[in-house]
Design a protein around this nucleic acid. Structure first.
Lengths: 252, 252
DNA sequence: TCACGGATGTTCTTTTTTGTTCGTATTCTC
DNA sequence: GAGAATACGAACAAAAAAGAACATCCGTGA
């Protein structure tokens, strides 16, 4: 048994069960704990797994738990919304896409389009879309938020401001019952406002969990959108707002 | 049993089980370990298999887009270079990181550092590093190249120009024997030049495949670097250049 | 037959890996 | 919160493997 082979097998075991103890590995491979520790430390050094007291666990699932969990939450609803939204985007269009897990799902749905030009301040959206060769992706510069790969800040806003696009696709953290759009990060709000100002058509996307949900920073009014995409019938007040301001409602 | 026939059989065994030890081969072919080692080293040299301590395994077999292939190519060499390079970067430092598969490997190796401030025009580097909560990641704005997630263009250069960092980490596409650094994309070259101009120390990383490799655009001279990281002893001419200009050479 | 070159074996040194020991740090139990 | 049990990492020793240098074998062609 070579060191390399043992380390491969350790990795397999970790992937399979999520966690292994040093004792398990010692009795399985018939080597000293010190040897196993060295293996685990090397694998951890290479970011192949995560070292814990007494053993080791998988790397990926622990790292971004909060973000990953949110990503999976309501994935089905988000996908339906995304499918609905991309229908009204023609090939060759130019788009803004902002931060949010919903907008990331929309980005994935856009991969079947052709020749899109896209400006985004979402690192993940850029990663997803740059796989498509006929897309032109422009990413805004600025500081990257750790938790979700969003790019925010003054410079980002200035950067976005250079562009005038056909569509602005906005994911939103919360919608107050009076139609106020809310977000948690004032810097992101500034970016979203700039996107709205520079888009010929504003497409708002939010699953039902966002209705009535509170957040700190006021982004704008739902009336500023041209289309609103969601997965359930919104509360009456919001529905009235949409009618009053001729915002087209799409329920997936 | 000819050498050729034995090597073919060794390859078959490796393909079948994914891994063979030298002991196995010794008892199977009834030759000395030294002979087997010579066989394995020759096969590894020809990229037919991957050499490990105590045996050998399959070369790659998974993932095969152009970008992925290049990424895997010489991965081991790149990893060694990366490990060597990150050693001279202290916690809390500020860095530029530019485009290239080598710099992506370096980014992964940096995950064990703390409190780094990093400016990059590489989308993948930003994605990799934003997982670490105590890092400040600043990504340059601009157009994203489809093939490798690099961000290039005039705006990118201006953006980079705002910063003055401790280290500039540059991956390079080719090094001419007279010490000229070469790249394929003139826009990326402008970015790299700006990084060099704004870094207190320039760290150049290139595996041996880059020596003598030709590319179109002249980026600068190897003399502009402070440290040069590679995996094999460079050709004599380049070595002389390094000595003449007091560039520290690190061979992983 | 004999010189030649490639392949293999032998021997030795260096490097890598593993085991051992011991002091320190962490976790658990009461 | 104190003390015991366990886990950890560092340093050193032993074992295994790798690499280098040289000797030997074996087939080929002059």
């Amino acid at each position: 048994m070579t060191q390399r082979r043992r380390q491969d097998l350790i990795l397999e075991k970790v992937q399979a069960s999520g966690f292994v103890t040093i004792d398990e590995l010692v009795s399985h491979f018939q080597v000293t704990p010190q040897t196993i520790r060295r293996d685990l430390n090397q694998l951890a050094q290479a970011n192949k797994l995560r070292r814990h007291h007494g053993g080791a666990g998988v790397e990926s699932s622990t790292e971004n738990t909060a973000y990953q969990a949110r990503k999976i939450m309501d994935l089905e609803a988000k996908e339906k919304i995304a499918q609905q939204l991309v229908k009204i985007i023609p090939d060759g269009a130019s788009l803004f896409i902002n931060i949010g897990t919903t907008t990331e799902t929309i980005a994935r749905a856009l991969l079947n389009h052709n020749n899109l030009r896209i400006v985004t301040n979402n690192l993940h959206v850029a990663s997803i879309l740059c796989a498509k060769e006929d897309f032109t992706i422009i990413v805004a510069g600025g500081e990257v938020r750790n938790r979700d790969g969003g790019i925010v800040g003054e410079a980002t806003r200035d950067f976005i401001n250079q562009f005038q696009m056909d569509f602005g696709i906005i994911g939103i953290s919360g919608i107050h019952s009076d139609g106020t759009l809310l977000d948690f990060d004032y810097r992101e709000v500034r970016v979203a406002q700039t996107i709205i100002a520079n888009s010929r058509q504003v497409l708002l996307a939010a699953d039902h969990s966002k209705f009535g949900r509170n957040a700190m920073v006021r982004l704008g009014k739902i009336a500023q959108a041209d289309h609103f995409f969601t997965d359930q019938v919104p509360p009456a007040e919001i529905r009235q707002q949409l009618i009053d301001h001729q915002v087209e409602l799409h329920i997936a």
